[in-house]
Design a protein around this nucleic acid. Sequence first.
DNA 1: GCGTTATGCTACGGTAAGTGTAGCAACGGA
DNA 2: TCCGTTGCTACACTTACCGTAGCATAACGC
Lengths: 112, 112
Amino acid sequence: MTKQAASKTRSVRGSRSSRPIMALLDLLGRRWSLRILWELRDAPLTSRALRSACDEASPTVLQTRLTELREAGFIELGEGGGYGLTPLGRELCEMVLPLHRFAERWHGKTNA
Amino acid sequence: MTKQAASKTRSVRGSRSSRPIMALLDLLGRRWSLRILWELRDAPLTSRALRSACDEASPTVLQTRLTELREAGFIELGEGGGYGLTPLGRELCEMVLPLHRFAERWHGKTNA
DNA sequence: GCGTTATGCTACGGTAAGTGTAGCAACGGA
DNA sequence: TCCGTTGCTACACTTACCGTAGCATAACGC
């Protein structure tokens, strides 16, 4: 993993591609990333509440994802504590929401 | 979180939740899942071509993801070889496509 | 002051997941 | 027959993630 000073690609691990979509796909393809966005869809949550919402996932990874998503500008830590979506993050979340309905139909097809 | 006869949830690892959205989020949150859907957006690809498209990712994981996505009913192995999207998979892919434009704008904001 | 509770965040040992290289059997064309 | 391609797998190694515990800080009631 040669790390020759990639200004933005630095945190994108596997995909050395510079295409933004690859970076985004890689970021969202890490554990709990999509789930975090999903759980924050309604209201901000504290780190502890978020952990509970995410099936008591390990705080180590959660904290890592939170930092990554924060650096990406999708979420932010509010004044009085608690993580919430930024305007940009909300846009992204809007693209994840329709997955809900799809998942319901998918579930009906696969084991019915 | 009762797992009353999880006939489909069996392969969902971390999230013991029975909610389909959680299962979907978990499946898509595994490495290369989103990328595979993305690379198959236009036309079917052979396993080798898909590997090349996915930045020469390890064939071990790729094969694992391919199997998972196939069991989920999102992709299928065509007659004359090559992986392609199923109608269901195409629907899912349609939700991933708008991420492209978003990623472009995102990239512009984060390092400009 | 003291203790309690909650915040965001981190250390550390163990397990699971992903990587990289090599190679398999099966099929088809020259 | 040899060659190239297909989908797929074995194996050792590295990395990511899990689970538990704990830190420093801050806000409360007493």
